[in-house]
Design a protein around this nucleic acid. Structure first.
Lengths: 335, 335
DNA sequence: AGAATCGGTCGAAGCGCTTCGACGATGGGT
DNA sequence: ACCCATCGTCGAAGCGCTTCGACCGATTCT
């Protein structure tokens, strides 16, 4: 492995000149620069990351903390991850992957050891213990999700309240007045990630605003859960003509159940789902859906991290606007 | 951030003693060791990763190259990833995540910069251009998958040929003699990952060995593809009583199609699938399936990497034996 | 014309750690 | 009683890089 001094010798300059060619922090003449670059290419020189980190206290690595809970959102998580990695690369950074189960200790470890310049944390909970820990680190961090109190840490997420509003507005636009929400399982509401609650709040608010008759129900996983939810909904809001489904997992059993009840989508019942595009299009009827913009959120998280590193931009909460994609699951209510 | 010399001063010893306490490379008396550890805890000292890497040429970081192709196997990929990260942590290593689309350049970058001690590469293709590049690196690597020529690089994968054999043997055990394979889409066979071909070879060989009548078909994605495959199968092997499905994506439309043809599982048709456990149990009938042991493969990959780093174990190919989990999709053929 | 400025380069210090050789103090073997 | 090994510790070199101050020659300003 050639070192910077090999390059310097080969190019007939000093080490510092090579360094400045590489970093651009001082002007270097075109010829010198060319000679140095040629030497670099010829020797196949790569600066040693550790040495560089030691001397500059910059690692060009971002930590990304992912939940490893293997539930239905795995593809969405993967979308976040690839978005973050890809975006990081455009800023010449790499990504160190941590799992949530390492908890606070993991954050302290990589930050304390100066392995990373900044941290991006997914799956942040309402009252996440990691937030105070993050605040103590010398590296900046950005949260994907929205805790109750971000304590001044930057956050990015989809605007779930606005998403609920858009879903209802879309259905109202088709003429629906009686609409039910099939929400996540009670476990999700309890678990602490706030998106379910924010969606529900938005749903309720939009319902009032639009003058709709609505009911909201959580939905236990599995066919039985769906059946129960549907039954209760018919009980509490008889004649509902549309469903907002904020529960990816429920989608398949929901279609099964609707089929067996003889209700056709969208003829008898319209549906708007909140789920990734590919899930929406993998259903028997392609669903009109609000996308989870995992890619945008991940990319934005990296951009904020970079801004923070450069001392730009003050922290704060960024809620991305929803996008509803119209497909085949909405129609005007019957009669 | 306290440094090792702060710790040394606080404990009243030299820097090297602190270092030896941490690494255990030289004997240190119990009292000294205790004093040093106390100082470390009190100061909240973390060794600087870059400095350590520079001095020791060990980074304690593994590179993991993942495909970012967002197709149906995303959950499986995620299982690999979490297995690798978790296993790496037990060896006190972290994981740097690279995407396949960076290709050879990404490998050379992180290896050249000495950011990692070893590399684990997923989704290796038949004639993967990254293999020669990997061979040129000074770091060892391990492949997940099985190329035509591993060029001496260690490989880990499920034994797909044996898996096919087990699937057939299981069905034969139930009394089936006429069995069809619903394979991956032609694109998968062409793409270059070898598992599809290995499964097919194993299927054919086992068919002969067990004296079965079989037919194998690729299956285009989507409902239409499934319908076509099923029709051709009925044509070429009329009266087939069982299916081996090596195509996760086809499963949902397959059930739809069987329902509409009035064929019940397992009463009229038995099925063995090759897919993750959760996919198998998310079908209308819980499928008897051969698991993709992503967790084991990922863990083993890390173990091999560690062995390689310690100069232990010679490279080679490790094919993990399959496990068939019996559920509700197999019965004796009718009549 | 002399001072101030700027572009381009060099030398050296120092980032925080590991590791090698050295050294005194013990203790066992003979 | 003497030599050698071993244990426990220290000092210093050096890993490969960045960056600061200095320097020199060429402009530019006044």
């Amino acid at each position: 492995m050639p070192t910077i001094s090999d390059v310097a010798r080969a190019a007939g300059v000093s080490m510092s000149t090579v360094s400045y060619v590489l970093s651009g922090r001082r002007p270097i003449s075109a010829e010198t620069s060319a000679r140095v670059k040629a030497a670099i290419a010829e020797l196949g020189y790569h600066p040693h990351a550790g040495a560089r980190a030691l001397a500059s206290s910059r690692t060009n690595v971002l930590a990304l903390v992912v939940p490893l809970r293997v539930d239905v959102n795995v593809p969405v998580i993967m979308q976040f991850v690839t978005a973050v990695v890809t975006a990081a690369r455009t800023y010449n950074h790499d990504v160190l992957l941590l799992t949530k189960d390492e908890g606070t200790a993991g954050l302290e470890r990589v930050a304390g050891a100066t392995m990373v310049d900044a941290l991006i944390v997914m799956d942040v909970e309402r009252d996440d213990v990691r937030i105070p820990a993050l605040g103590r680190l010398k590296q900046p961090s950005v949260l994907i999700g929205l805790p109750d109190d971000a304590a001044g840490i930057a956050c990015v997420d989809l605007d779930f309240a606005a998403t609920a509003h858009e879903c209802l507005a879309h259905l109202a636009g088709h003429g629906h007045r009686r609409i039910a929400l099939v929400g996540p399982s009670p476990a999700v509401y309890e678990r602490g990630t706030t998106y379910a609650g924010r969606f529900l709040d938005g749903f309720t608010a939009a319902s009032d605003e639009l003058g709709l008759e609505t009911v909201a129900h959580s939905c236990e996983p599995g066919a039985a859960g769906v059946r129960a939810a549907l039954t209760e909904i018919e009980d509490e809001l008889p004649g509902a003509t549309a469903l907002v489904v904020h529960n990816e997992e429920a989608l398949v059993p929901l279609f099964e159940e609707l089929r067996s009840r003889g209700r056709r989508v969208p003829d008898d019942l319209s549906i708007v789902a909140v789920c990734p595009r590919d899930v929406a299009t993998s259903m028997p009827v392609h669903l009109t859906s609000a996308d989870i913009p995992a890619h945008d959120v991940g990319t934005l998280a990296v951009e904020i991290a970079m801004d923070l590193l450069d001392g730009r931009r003050t922290e704060g909460v960024r809620l991305l606007p929803p996008t509803i994609v119209e497909r085949d699951s909405c129609a005007a209510p019957r009669g």
